[in-house]
């Protein structure tokens, strides 16, 4: 069970229709790979964010599979074209079944 998980996203407040904007996302998460051992020699169970998605008004923008080699606090930056005003919805899926969500509106102007 990962503790202290907190998603963050940065999306411009507004954009011109058809413009490509840069979206930055970061989630604080230990991303325990499952490869390490504790002091007694027991394997520390894997606990990572295994999937990240971004949707805009119901349409998928990006769908990422994350693997154990990705480091602590995964940071994902990507571009998206904004055809109309609406809302970006971000979802992170944790190994332990938790789902973290964040949403940001964007206006045209």
């Amino acid at each position: 069970m990962a503790t202290g998980v907190k998603p963050r996203v940065k999306v411009p407040k507004s954009a011109a229709a058809g413009d490509a904007i840069t979206i930055k996302t970061l989630i604080s998460h230990p991303m325990e790979s499952g490869q390490r051992k504790d002091k007694e020699g027991n394997a520390i169970p894997r606990s990572i964010i295994n999937r990240f998605t971004c949707d805009f008004n119901g349409q998928n923008v990006i769908d990422v599979t994350l693997e154990p080699a990705i480091s602590t606090n995964p940071y994902i930056e990507f571009e998206a074209t904004v055809p109309e005003a609406g809302e970006f919805k971000f979802t992170w899926y944790d190994d332990d079944g938790s789902v973290y969500e964040e949403a940001k509106p964007i206006a045209i102007g």
């Binding site: 907190k6 963050r8 940065k10 606090n73």
Partner: peptide
């Protein structure tokens, strides 16, 4: 501040 990894700890 979004790129500064130190700000995660400030949030905590």
């Amino acid at each position: 501040d979004f790129d500064n990894p130190g700000m995660i700890f400030v949030d905590q």
